[in-house]
Simulated assay, not measured.
Amino acid sequence: MSANADRDDRDLEADPASSTSGPVGVPVDAVCVGCGRTRVTRTSLEAMEIDPRVDLSDLDAADCTSFKHVCRSCWAITWRNPIAILTGLLESERGE
């Protein structure tokens, strides 16, 4: 199994721009339970059992549940554990 990359070594701006993060949803830094790799993944608030009307600036990863997503590292549909909601990335995409 691969080890988690240090967050300081990752380019969080480039990661969600890759085709592996998906085109829609909230960008979440999440750990794959299959391979242990941390990647930016886009998912819906509903998939993390969060009310879609929530103010994203008030949302914390600890409030979110695990969600299923395709992992491009281990090539399986696995559970991912959110460790950070990337609200700064959302703001930059919106031009705020």
Rank of each mutant, 00 (worst) to 15 (best):
R80Q: 09
L56T: 05
L12I: 05
L90I: 12
C35Y: 02
V26W: 02
W75E: 15
A3Y: 01
D11R: 12
A62R: 15
S21N: 07
W75D: 13
T20A: 15
D51K: 15
S19L: 09
S44N: 07
I85S: 02
V33A: 08
R80G: 00
E93S: 11
G95S: 09
A76R: 12
L12T: 01
V40L: 12
A76Y: 00
S2C: 10
A17T: 01
R39V: 02
A5Y: 00
G25H: 03
M1R: 14
I77C: 13
E96T: 10
D60N: 08
S73Y: 04
P27K: 08
D9L: 13
P52E: 09
S57D: 11
G88C: 10
A61C: 07
C71S: 08
L59T: 05
W79I: 02
R39M: 07
A61K: 09
A47G: 01
G88Q: 13
H69R: 14
E49Q: 12
H69G: 07
D9M: 13
T87L: 14
S66D: 12
T43D: 04
I50V: 15
L89G: 06
M1F: 03
I50L: 13
L89E: 05
L89Q: 06
C71K: 04
C71Q: 01
H69I: 02
R10K: 11
S57A: 14
R7F: 07
A47K: 11
E93H: 10
A61T: 03
